[in-house]
Write a protein that binds this DNA or RNA. Structure first.
Lengths: 202, 202
DNA sequence: ATTTGAATTTTTGAATCAATTATTCAAATA
DNA sequence: TATTTGAATAATTGATTCAAAAATTCAAAT
């Protein structure tokens, strides 16, 4: 039946969600090695072997779980950016809300600390390249819009985007992964202001 | 004898230099684990046990060797900064020559690749904090001078310095430690231009 | 199409041991 | 006195083994 198979697909997507959420929670608490596929299965109420119906192997389970969380993050910011019109406002929202989101999601934060290489300065060893590339394209669109509107300097969009995204990753690392006493917030504000000034025509 | 003990001190400093250079070269080629204290001793023409007259242990040998190289780097830039007067010029020299120096010193570069954590975004886990702090203070002085001269915006010097130094470290990591195909140079130019624009009054 | 239990393969961690390497130090030297 | 050495000791590493735990497969069941 068409309808039935459609229903089943929904179920499957739902179940995948459940698995990814449960897995993320465990990975965040205990780390990759200390969480077993069986732990995840138990938490989600199925058998170990059934997990393999949804993912290729444990590594795949991990990557899909993290990707899923990162996509949710990115899409949340994307939606918020859509609520305003001007490039300046969009830039401010992207910069501000990205951090607030992480502030509000302790589990994701815990995961970043367990596995600091989730954010890397090296695209070629970025295990979540696709998600991050998406985020970067979002930023690029904002910058391009600002240039088109004539409020941003006509910079080299690709390289400036890459630069700003790297600075963003740097801030994430400094704030959540290698957080010291953290005058890091103040540094973020000052650095952002400096960049904003360098980006906007007066 | 006063004179004699003075002479001996010179000799000692010389020999330390020799040891540090030899050690750095070996560490850069073979990495920390694969180079033995004896390798260093042989290369410098003394006995293994005599190395311990100059350093506390192998770890100390490594740290002193790297610190020594980093200090030389920093002092070279410091000297070059002194050759010009204006804050803008000093900033440009600091930004440009730091990278060129590394470009010219393959052994130091090789070392960075063997031990990527020499440069960290986290001051609290920076094994070479003192040297790096010195470099940061240099940068801070330039920014302060620019503000005093009235050519830079009156920014929060401490936090902006910290920000710029972090960006500098980020570039080093991206360019030499995690270098991809490296459109990294172009990104550096664009990012630097953006920052410079955000820093300088028009 | 999804789930399961049981079987199989792979990985991990602890334990052992020999060889290598780091470190100490009393005696020698300059 | 400052520096160097050889010889002795202590600590670390790497290879190997092996049993337990965990990952993965799959034929059969729902």
């Amino acid at each position: 039946m068409r309808l039935k198979s459609f229903m089943k697909k929904m179920d499957k997507a739902d179940k995948e969600q459940k698995i990814f959420q449960a897995a993320l929670s465990l990975f965040a608490h205990f780390g990759y090695r200390k969480t077993t596929v069986e732990d995840v299965a138990v938490k989600v109420g199925m058998t170990k072997s059934n997990i393999y119906f949804y993912v290729k192997n444990k590594q795949d389970l991990y990557e899909k779980s993290v990707s899923h969380a990162l996509e949710k993050w990115r899409d949340t910011i994307a939606a918020e950016i859509e609520t305003v019109d001007s490039a300046k406002e969009k830039f401010a929202i992207a910069a501000g809300r990205s951090f607030e989101y992480l502030e509000d999601h302790g589990e994701l934060r815990a995961l970043l600390i367990k596995d600091p290489d989730i954010f890397t300065l090296s695209p070629s060893e970025d295990r979540f390249y696709e998600v991050n590339r998406g985020a970067m394209m979002m930023l690029k669109a904002v910058i391009q819009q600002g240039i088109d509107e004539g409020v941003f300097y006509p910079v080299d969009v690709d390289h400036v985007t890459e630069f700003l995204f790297s600075v963003y990753i740097m801030f994430l690392i400094k704030t959540y992964v290698k957080s010291d006493g953290s005058s890091s917030e103040r540094m973020y504000e000052e650095g952002l202001a400096l960049i904003f000034r360098g980006l906007c025509k007066t």
